[in-house]
Design a protein around this nucleic acid. Sequence first.
DNA 1: AGCAATTCCTATCAAAGCAGTAGGAAAATG
DNA 2: CATTTTCCTACTGCTTTGATAGGAATTGCT
Lengths: 146, 146
Amino acid sequence: MLSSKAKYAVRAALQVAELGRDADWVQVAGIAQREAISRKFLEAILVRLRDEGLLESRRGAQGGYRLARAAAQISVADVIRCIDGPLALTPCASRTRYGQCRDCVDVSRCRLQPLMQQARDAVAAVLENCSLAALIAAPGCVPLDV
Amino acid sequence: MLSSKAKYAVRAALQVAELGRDADWVQVAGIAQREAISRKFLEAILVRLRDEGLLESRRGAQGGYRLARAAAQISVADVIRCIDGPLALTPCASRTRYGQCRDCVDVSRCRLQPLMQQARDAVAAVLENCSLAALIAAPGCVPLDV
DNA sequence: AGCAATTCCTATCAAAGCAGTAGGAAAATG
DNA sequence: CATTTTCCTACTGCTTTGATAGGAATTGCT
């Protein structure tokens, strides 16, 4: 399951993408109000997205956040990974942050790992192919078969 | 990410499937030793798999566990769901245990949900199509393209 | 009947993660 | 200089995770 934080992050990123078209800076307070998120909580989330290079920020009056790249170049997977970490179901199946499972006796003979990699690839195919731009454009975001 | 418990559960189920072919009862202690899991911890896991109808048990000497259905009729998804709950990334995308996200303002206008359903379907397609029997048979369990 | 093997039930616990709160420092604008 | 806004650090309550412990209930064997 995704954390609330991750879901907030995606929603917030969508707002930044939508409201910041003319290179305007979008403020936390507004996003928080529209999405019914605690302002302080959202601050921490956006700082993280900025640290990870998805957003840019500016302090002071008329400051705020904007996308660091084009909305079409930021996938939902990117945002989720910033907050919740890898999409994979096990560390050993992650491509972005591979790691050995603590409970695994011998990776090379693990019967789960290949399956977990398939599962990872399946989710990644969906979430990496869906950009913020796509989510905004398509109501329902079904880029493939609709 | 899967919990350790869920991974233990799949490994244990595999052992029960493998060692219990002749309707033999497989003991917790043996599984625990071979998979390097705490016996008491594993007990709790197997009880849960039994409560959920995946395993049958018998107490006393020569007792133990065996599959409640054929190994080909139990998917990895079944086992994981017993322990960790739905595969979906959000409650609102779960088919087996649908529920509204606590942080969602209006489900009908949620822009994430359709995408989350796609992601769920993608993982489910992999994990529901892989049975314990398949995992045992195929080293690497790649039923589709290898 | 009695003993050993084995699952089953209840309770407890430490550590980590999640969701959120609080206060104020630093920077930009006008 | 005042206001706005991000940024940084710290804290807190709650739940989940990953166990551990002790013993009750059941079954098989002799």
